[in-house]
Design a protein around this nucleic acid. Structure first.
Length: 477
DNA sequence: CTCCTCCGCTTG
DNA sequence: GTACGAGCGGAGGAGC
């Protein structure tokens, strides 16, 4: 299926269309293990700005529109995708600053930790080997040490974190060390080592590429580097956010949509229990727990809330009883009962999801709130697995895609409002925006962004945005 | 040396 | 067989 490529990719293609030769970063600097600093001329050539920007964008529009109309409606192009070109171009142009000293310091610290864990792993294994090599690790774990094989991949026994976790619970020593090694190695290799080398020498900042239509649902994607998957879930991982810092004299301002996908689901389904829960303004997972367990909100235990949260997300993704049972650590039969009970309490949600599957079968596609289409040819496959995938895509895409539409509209509105000020939009992370603003304007920026995001689209339920201000990304809470 | 696939891991 | 959407790095093999 044809795709509208990302901003830089689009520009490169379009410039080629006009006979202008562009060079990618790889072409400019050479490919390979050595990382490639972003050369200033690359930025000059690939990002439209200054005098050339208006002219170039004008000439690009017909080409982009033609591509975009293949999978969406004209109004969507006009109201969202075309205006967003300029927003993304500016985000790419601004980039984001990192604290090189912090990165270097952490890199050294992790290298030391890694060395110690490696020694320990080798000692327990009884020999030296490449821990990063899955084949070598399989030999050690399952041949030499005879640990039980819990799950297989296409090419052999699985050694992923869930398997190692389970082996660790059975009392084996090595899996715990491997989990720790992998976590630290990932942090060092993918983040602490890689990011500093992508700092542009002229701007001193990292300029990611944001693409509009790589994702089938209409979400943005970020690459070179991907700044949408910076660690946050673990304590040691989240620390890296201390290394993302605003320009001198500026503060970061962050703004997150709270449970936007569940709100979209509530809107589409119109399920009264769901809609009322959001309108009451209380904790949605807690409310859900009260409804599915049949207790009052005060009686909801933390365990009940956690289970409800898992089931809420399971619903968004079309998760089945098997996976839910794995997730909650219960039997498949119990998980099945859980799901049935959930839909018995939220019948309109079930009805809405079924309608999407029916629509995909009948029309070949489903739509977001703004009319963006996702075509789902898999829906009529005779192969059960392919068809089931199509059904999950049909139920998930309108929800995920509508959330993407809403934040894109917010970005356009905010971009318009902050034009000519010193407030800069730097990142989008699906339901979050990151800005930097002069210290004395940070509070103003925070309230402005919150207002525009919450009013970007009117749903049956309110949109809620949680904001933060800080002198680094970690502290924006 | 380059490109590709697989595995595993990070995020919303 | 078994949860949606992404991107990246290392290992190892295919092919030039």
């Amino acid at each position: 299926m044809p795709r509208c490529a990302g901003l830089r990719t689009d520009l490169t293609l379009a410039l080629a269309h006009f006979g202008v030769k562009t060079q990618t970063r790889e072409e400019l600097c050479g490919k390979g293990r050595d990382v490639v600093p972003i050369d200033e001329c690359e930025l000059d050539r690939v990002t439209p700005y200054a005098a050339e920007k208006a002219d170039l964008a004008l000439r690009l529009r017909p080409i982009l529109t033609e591509e975009m109309e293949r999978f969406s409606v004209a109004a969507l192009c006009r109201d969202i995708e075309l205006p967003l070109i300029d927003v993304l171009a500016e985000m790419e142009w601004h980039g984001i600053r990192i604290d090189l000293e912090f990165f270097a310091h952490m890199g050294r610290r992790l290298a030391r930790d890694l060395h110690l864990i490696q020694q320990e792993i080798w000692k327990v294994a009884g020999e030296e080997f490449n821990i990063n090599s899955t084949p070598q690790l399989r030999t050690i774990l399952f041949d030499k040490l005879q640990l039980p094989v819990l799950r297989k991949t296409k090419t052999g026994p699985s050694t992923d974190a869930s398997v190692l976790e389970e082996l660790a619970e059975q009392g084996y020593e090595l899996p715990r060390l491997l989990i720790e090694f992998r976590q630290i190695d990932k942090l060092k290799g993918t983040y602490y080592d890689a990011l500093p080398q992508l700092v542009n020498p002229r701007t001193g900042r990292i300029h990611s590429s944001f693409r509009q239509a790589v994702a089938a649902t209409g979400r943005l994607s970020s690459s070179d580097p991907n700044l949408q998957n910076i660690p946050i879930r673990t304590e040691t991982g989240a620390e890296i956010r201390k290394g993302f810092i605003p320009a001198d004299g500026f503060l970061f301002v962050t703004a997150d949509y709270s449970q936007i996908e569940l709100r979209v689901l509530a809107h589409f389904s119109g399920d009264p229990a769901f809609v009322d829960a959001f309108r009451s303004g209380a904790d949605i997972h807690r409310q859900t727990a009260g409804i599915i367990f049949g207790v009052s909100v005060d009686e909801v235990t933390p365990e009940m809330r956690a289970a409800a949260k898992t089931v809420n997300f399971a619903t968004l993704y079309g998760q089945g009883a098997f996976a839910l049972s794995q997730n909650l650590g219960i039997s498949v039969a119990e998980a099945k009962e859980f799901i049935e009970n959930y839909f018995a309490r939220f019948p309109d949600v079930r009805r809405y999801l079924d309608e999407q599957i029916e629509k995909a079968r009948a029309c070949g596609y489903v739509e977001t709130i703004s009319g963006r289409r996702r075509y789902i040819p898999e829906i009529n496959s005779r192969n059960y697995n392919i068809r089931a995938f199509g059904e999950r895509a049909a139920t998930n895409a309108p929800v995920q895609g509508s959330a993407a539409d809403i934040i894109k509209l917010a970005m356009i509105a905010i971009h318009r409002e902050i034009a000519g000020t010193d407030i800069r939009m730097l990142l989008q992370v699906h339901d979050e925006l990151v800005f930097e603003a002069p210290i004395d304007q940070a509070e103003h920026a925070r309230s402005l962004v919150k207002r525009l995001m919450e009013n970007a689209f009117e749903l049956r339920v309110p949109l809620e945005v949680v904001t933060g201000v800080g002198s680094d990304w970690f502290s924006c809470k």
